[in-house]
Amino acid sequence: MTTGSDAVEQAAQERPAEEAGRAPDTDTTDEAVVAEHPKQPDFAQLWVCGFLGLLGALVIVDAARLGGFAASNDPIGPKPVPIILGILLFVVAAFYALDVVRGGHGEDEGANAGQHFDWKTIAALCGVFIANALLIDWLGWVISGSILFWGSAIVLGSRKYVLALAIAVVLALGTFYGFAIGLGLGLPAGVLQGIL
């Protein structure tokens, strides 16, 4: 087993080197990938602990509201499980925080820790995704799905606007005819009802 875990470590160490050797991308800020991950503890991990603690609180608050009546066919009711989960969440959050302070990190030696995080692109991608969710019932899958594909491709770095749009429309029409009409899947036609 020791040799096995050595192998993993070896693989984990090699991967950043591979990335560093890769040709830089056209318009991205990838220097952070090359940068050595910091020796000091990765305190950003404390966000995870906070999230776990918050989740624990939400679970316990909700469980407290449940009617804890015990029937003969269900002596413990729905309450104990969420309460146990909530307590365990607090415990794990605490130990997690302890681990972080001691310099613990996740898989791959925390190799992702030092990397640049492109919040703008994430937000844009989420925006495209939400647009689809908002528009799907009104505009229908063919239009909203096309927007989803085209928008995601552009956000993720494609600069071939027309090609991406063509692929998007073909995919959306293809899936609509194939799945909704062919296989009876519930995809909405939306404003194009009657045209498609």
């Binding site: 689809n132 019932d137 998007a168």
Partner: peptide
Amino acid sequence: PYLFAGILFFASMGAYATSGQA
């Protein structure tokens, strides 16, 4: 970009088709 746009596309389609709800 196309690969992951396609993945998001099919993931959304599957999720919507399963429940019928946005």
